[in-house]
């Protein structure tokens, strides 16, 4: 009997506590930048596509919801010819971001992507690719890789010596 009354009293006291419910969607809660929400593909500081179509995110994905096809431009720079994420399968685990060697694929604090059917949840590269660098501002994979691309020849990446002269015998 006593406990019944005490419970009723406790509940009554709650009426005077601070409210935690917020009036979503009019009011939005704070989401930290490292929240794992809608996935984007970012660009490097020069504006080039960061994704080099290495397939690592696809391999890391536990639900296998990333599919892409690698292609190469005329100078040898790699990019995905298509890049598809099926968000109706995605569990937002962030493994793809962890696997990505170029910071191309990033999870963002956006979680508002409900649809009435599943088909619109299939995002193609046009839907994924943003114009900025996302969370990582400075990294530019091709500046450290040995591959040549337009405007960067052999020996011009970070920490590289100029190409060897094969015909020289100098030490």
């Amino acid at each position: 009997m006593f406990s019944l009354i005490r419970t009723a009293w406790d509940i009554f006291l709650h009426a005077f506590r601070r409210r935690v419910t917020i009036q979503y969607p009019e009011v939005k809660s704070y989401i930290p930048p490292r929240w794992r929400g809608r996935i984007i593909l970012s660009r490097d500081p020069d504006g080039g596509e960061r994704c080099v179509a290495c397939y690592l995110c696809a391999a890391a994905c536990p639900v296998d919801c990333i599919a892409l096809q690698a292609a190469e431009d005329e100078y040898g720079r790699r990019y995905p010819a298509f890049f598809r994420i099926n968000f109706s399968r995605c569990i937002f685990c962030g493994y793809c971001e962890e696997a990505c060697p170029t910071y191309a694929i990033q999870l963002t604090p956006d979680y508002e992507m409900c649809e009435y059917t599943r088909q619109p949840l299939v995002y193609e590269k046009e839907d994924l690719l943003i114009d900025g660098t996302g969370k990582y501002h400075d990294y530019n994979y091709y500046k450290v890789a040995g591959l040549t691309i337009k405007d960067k020849g052999k020996g011009e990446a970070g920490n590289e010596a100029p190409p060897v002269d094969v015909r020289s015998l100098m030490p």
Partner: peptide
Amino acid sequence: RYSGRTAMFADITV
């Protein structure tokens, strides 16, 4: 380690 099972054909049908 085969990847993309749930996305390969998702453009055609989800």
